[in-house]
Design a protein around this nucleic acid. Structure first.
Lengths: 240, 240
DNA sequence: CAGTGGTCTAGACCACACC
DNA sequence: GTGTGGTCTAGACCACTGG
């Protein structure tokens, strides 16, 4: 095939971009039929469909069998809780200016349930505590445990300072990208130390997300426990 | 095309079924290549790919570019927080015996922020309070607001008693199926009434999920606010 | 009925992982 | 290089919706 009128990169992604531009304007509008779009853009209908599938997954387009495709009334959908992104990204996406402060790095014996979740043979590992702010106000305090074996020494973990997020550190410096994370969501009373960092009264309700991040080979990379102030920042979630 | 060796129903669904059977046995096993599967099953490669895409979305299969497709080590993945299902289903899926008790049904003026979220012209509507138990222990208390217009009278809402869940009621009795819900997740201190129903001290931390459910035409159907005991039941969530 | 999205095919070439 | 999954095409027919 020839690149067509669109040039390089994946064709259906270019179609996504082309359609995205149209979509910004008209909420609720009807899109041309798939066959029409294919002709207009000079690609096959299958490629148009792949693009529409992506837009539908993003919540930007609604397709109705036998009727047509429409721009979702909401237009752009904010990133939901189900998206794997760094806390900094999450904060930025919510419209705040993110900052992250690495409060401590240490070598420790990780809690028993954490070692179990990490399937770690040894309880030895490293702990990083980070405080995230949105527009300067603390909203998130996280404790990350990395088992010995993923990181060899505290010196290696020092590299974390160069990166704005743990995920970037794993991806860029350790070359062990995080592919997915399996988390539990719960509400707890803020423990003393946590409350202090988040500028809350001890015992105030906080949302906790905790669990394990996995790499390309389904190998456990780290255990994260994050405490959120939900009065300052709310997760949104679309259930389908 | 001819139906092929598989018979009626959607072809790729039959392929999903055929593969699911294989998958139960071997965790971590490698699947034949897409081309091979297509030949074996007598379908096109595109159809095999559609089936694999479904299985991958279900978390049962892992595909790696240039390498092959594999049965996920975890096998079947539990439904996460992102799935739209009734609370009863959620509880059952978590391995408990669910029960739901309709505590009250009344006609009210809905709270202002609820009416706004529902895009309701009138603040008039109906309220249903339900307590859900898992193996007899209360874990979830929900307040649902339905605007006037979706339901006309309290009598109509009485039909709710015949159904185990609000979603079933909407789907079966009102013929207005819920297509998706847009929710916020937060942690709060349990208000007095709620704490009582959940057998908690007032002020104990509870997880709240609240938001609007939408129908086939993106029309707001109801506002739900649900309080969870996360010590008894935890949401799980896979971020990708 | 006409028009839409949904499914399916057969075949081609590309990008990537591994030997 | 060889084999894998990823992308793309051109064309066909099916299933649903709405006038």
């Amino acid at each position: 095939m020839s690149p067509g009128p669109l040039g390089r990169q994946k064709l259906h992604e270019l179609v996504v971009d082309a359609l995205t531009a149209r979509l910004r304007a008209a909420a609720g509008a009807r899109l041309p039929s798939e066959t029409q779009l294919a002709q207009e853009l000079g690609v096959s209908r299958a490629t148009v469909r792949e693009a529409l599938r992506i837009l539908e997954a993003q919540g930007m387009v609604r397709r109705r069998h036998g009727v047509g495709s429409f721009v979702s009334p909401r237009g752009f959908v904010e990133a939901g809780i189900e998206r794997l992104e760094s806390f900094s990204e999450t904060i930025a996406r919510a419209g705040y200016r993110p900052s992250a402060e690495l409060l401590s790095l240490s070598e420790t014996s990780v809690p028993e349930e954490v070692a179990a979740a990490l399937q770690a043979p040894s309880p030895l590992g490293f702990e990083a505590q980070t405080l995230y702010r949105a527009d300067g106000a603390p909203i998130l305090f996280s404790v990350v445990y990395v088992p010995l074996g993923i990181v060899r020494s505290l010196q290696e973990l020092e590299g974390r300072r160069h990166w704005t997020s743990m995920r970037e550190f794993f991806n860029q410096e350790l070359r062990r990208p995080v592919r997915y994370a399996r988390l539990a969501v719960l509400a707890v009373a803020a423990p003393e130390g946590v409350a202090g960092h988040l500028a809350l009264e001890p015992g105030a309700p906080v949302l906790v997300m905790e669990g394990v991040s996995y790499g390309d080979d389904d190998d456990p990379l780290m255990f994260t426990r994050a405490y959120f102030r939900t009065d300052k920042y709310r997760f949104t979630l679309v259930r389908r």
